[in-house]
């Protein structure tokens, strides 16, 4: 099997990685780069725990080949926070109690962050729809949905 040398920007750092054809973006992040905040929950694009931003849009990183990311920009949960402060959605989900076991949390944060970027003031229905691909078994989603609302309010205050 062939290996490919790719250049990819991850959380603002340019990385050069050698990846086999069959390596997924999720495996590259977790295994080649030890960015283990991105979680492996199903490897089938169903649970959303591995959600990252690929060129600004959320994807299931288990359903993207690493080699396809040559020249791409990736943001993982490790890259959400600024140098000094958390992203509003991180702040909100802590405050609202939207974290329990924490395994779905990175994916939830990425999906929510992306939602708030394309729609700064989402309705409850829009939040539910945006998170439908991020399974959570602990919280029952109530506090997660609330967190997104709170983050939207935080953002509107700061901008």
């Amino acid at each position: 099997m062939a290996f490919h040398k790719i250049n990819v920007t991850i959380n603002d750092d340019l990385e050069q990685v050698v990846v086999p054809s069959n390596m997924t973006l999720m495996h590259m992040l977790r295994e080649s780069l030890a960015l283990t905040g991105t979680k492996n929950g199903c490897s089938a694009g169903e649970c959303g725990a591995c959600t990252v931003l690929l060129n600004g849009e959320p994807v299931n990183s288990c359903m993207v080949l690493a080699v396809e990311c040559d020249g791409a920009k990736i943001v993982t949960v490790e890259g959400l926070a600024g140098k000094k402060q958390l992203d509003p959605i991180q702040e909100a989900i802590v405050q609202e109690g939207g974290v329990q076991c924490g395994f779905c949390t990175p994916g939830i944060l990425i999906s929510s962050h992306a939602l708030l970027k394309r729609n700064p003031n989402p309705s409850e229905d829009e939040i539910r729809e945006a998170l439908v691909g991020n399974l959570c078994r602990c919280t029952g989603y109530v506090r997660i949905i609330e967190s997104v609302k709170v983050a939207a309010r935080m953002q509107s205050v700061t901008t």
Binding site: K39, L86, Q90, I93, V99, G102, P106
Partner: peptide
């Protein structure tokens, strides 16, 4: 009281068994 583990869980820093190198 705020969750003691929340911050590390929202920054991706929390370590789970599959994350150990």
């Amino acid at each position: 009281s705020p969750r003691i583990d929340a911050r590390e869980k929202v920054t991706g820093a929390a370590i789970y068994a599959d994350d150990i190198q």
